[in-house]
Amino acid sequence: PEDEKKAKEALKRANGDEDKAKEILRKLGVDPDRAEELLRRLR
């Protein structure tokens, strides 16, 4: 869904750096736990 698209985009923008991607997602208003879960799934 929408969050998943955001997560993929964030990872791309962060050049695969998960911590940076998490930060980006947090700024986009995605719940930190949700962000973590999404990134884990994309790994």
Rank of each mutant, 00 (worst) to 15 (best):
P1E: 15
P1G: 14
P1N: 14
P1R: 13
E2T: 12
E2Q: 09
E2N: 11
E2G: 11
E2V: 09
E2L: 10
D3I: 09
D3E: 13
D3R: 03
D3P: 04
D3T: 05
D3A: 07
E4M: 15
E4F: 15
E4W: 15
E4C: 08
E4V: 14
K5M: 14
K5C: 06
K5S: 10
K5G: 08
K5N: 11
K5V: 13
K5R: 14
K5D: 12
K5Y: 12
K5F: 12
K6V: 13
K6I: 15
K6H: 12
A7N: 01
A7M: 05
A7D: 01
A7K: 01
A7Y: 04
A7F: 05
A7P: 01
A7I: 08
A7R: 01
K8R: 15
K8M: 14
K8E: 08
K8S: 08
K8C: 10
K8I: 15
K8F: 12
K8A: 12
E9G: 06
E9D: 11
E9P: 01
E9H: 11
E9K: 07
E9W: 15
E9M: 11
A10K: 01
A10D: 00
A10N: 01
A10H: 01
A10V: 04
L11T: 01
L11F: 07
L11E: 01
L11N: 01
K12Q: 12
K12Y: 13
K12T: 09
K12M: 13
K12V: 10
K12C: 08
K12L: 14
R13H: 10
R13G: 05
R13W: 14
R13N: 09
A14Q: 02
A14V: 06
A14K: 01
A14N: 02
A14T: 07
N15H: 12
N15F: 11
N15P: 02
N15E: 08
N15L: 10
N15K: 12
N15S: 07
N15I: 04
N15R: 13
G16P: 01
G16A: 03
G16C: 10
G16T: 02
G16D: 04
G16M: 05
D17I: 04
D17F: 04
D17T: 02
D17R: 05
E18R: 11
E18D: 05
E18N: 07
E18L: 15
D19T: 14
D19Q: 14
D19M: 13
D19E: 15
D19G: 12
K20T: 09
K20L: 14
K20S: 06
K20E: 10
K20M: 13
A21L: 04
A21W: 03
A21Y: 05
A21K: 01
A21H: 00
A21V: 03
A21R: 01
K22L: 14
K22S: 05
K22P: 00
K22D: 02
K22M: 14
K22H: 06
K22I: 12
E23S: 07
E23N: 06
E23I: 09
I24Q: 03
I24H: 04
I24G: 02
I24A: 05
I24P: 00
I24R: 03
I24W: 07
I24N: 03
I24L: 10
L25M: 06
L25F: 02
L25W: 01
L25N: 00
L25A: 01
L25G: 00
L25Q: 00
L25C: 03
L25V: 01
R26T: 14
R26L: 15
R26M: 15
R26A: 13
R26P: 00
K27L: 15
K27P: 01
K27V: 11
K27C: 10
L28E: 09
L28N: 06
L28T: 04
L28F: 07
L28V: 05
L28K: 04
G29P: 00
G29R: 03
G29H: 03
G29M: 03
V30K: 01
V30M: 15
V30Y: 15
V30G: 01
V30D: 00
V30N: 01
V30A: 02
V30F: 15
D31K: 08
D31I: 04
D31M: 09
D31G: 09
D31N: 10
D31L: 10
D31R: 08
D31W: 04
P32F: 07
P32K: 12
P32M: 11
P32C: 07
P32L: 11
P32Q: 09
P32R: 10
P32S: 11
D33P: 05
D33G: 11
D33S: 12
D33Q: 13
D33L: 13
D33M: 13
D33W: 12
R34A: 10
R34C: 07
R34T: 13
R34F: 10
A35V: 12
A35L: 07
A35T: 04
A35I: 15
A35K: 00
A35F: 08
A35Y: 05
E36I: 07
E36A: 12
E36Q: 07
E36N: 08
E37A: 09
E37R: 06
E37L: 08
E37F: 06
E37W: 06
E37S: 06
E37D: 08
L38V: 05
L38M: 10
L38Y: 04
L38S: 02
L38D: 00
L38I: 10
L38F: 04
L39D: 00
L39W: 02
L39F: 07
L39H: 00
L39G: 00
L39I: 14
L39S: 00
L39K: 00
R40L: 10
R40Y: 05
R40T: 06
R40M: 10
R40K: 11
R41T: 06
R41L: 12
R41G: 07
R41Y: 08
R41K: 13
R41A: 11
R41E: 06
L42I: 11
L42S: 03
L42Y: 06
L42W: 05
L42K: 02
L42N: 03
L42T: 03
R43F: 07
R43G: 06
R43E: 05
R43Q: 08
R43P: 02
R43V: 09
